[in-house]
Design a protein around this nucleic acid. Structure first.
Length: 104
DNA sequence: ACATTGACTAATT
DNA sequence: TAATTAGCCAATG
């Protein structure tokens, strides 16, 4: 993967407002839709390498579940940001929290 | 060039 | 609702 792709993904993730989330698939469609490549797994690969400096906890999989190795922390942060979570705080309520670049 | 792996997804059971 | 299966794209060895 090249710089252009990395930058596109990171910028998009950085653009997610607090209290909202995006799924890997949606990001892949937004970025891949323009650059004509990549997929959900590539987005995940990028974020895994991005390290700190990027709000990776605002990116969840299609089930509304944050990354496995730090899902508890991610959920804690999301909750503190006011992101809509399920009653048991175990997962994000995609129906309410999902966001994409057009601001809705 | 081939096989394995991963912060994924959608359909099926 | 949760577990399983098959498909997916690119990186890595």
């Amino acid at each position: 993967m090249d710089e252009e792709y990395l930058e596109a993904v990171l910028d998009l993730v950085a653009a997610i407002p607090a209290g909202r989330v995006m799924t890997y698939g949606t990001i892949a469609e937004e970025v891949g839709g323009v650059l004509r490549r990549g997929g959900p797994r590539q987005v995940g690969a990028v974020l895994s390498r991005a390290g700190s400096g990027v709000p990776w906890w605002r990116v969840v999989n299609a089930s509304g579940l944050p990354p496995a190795f730090k899902r508890a922390d991610a959920l804690a942060v999301l909750r503190s940001e006011g992101c809509p979570l399920s009653a048991d705080d175990a997962r994000v309520r995609l129906r309410d929290a999902l966001w994409w670049p057009d601001g809705t």
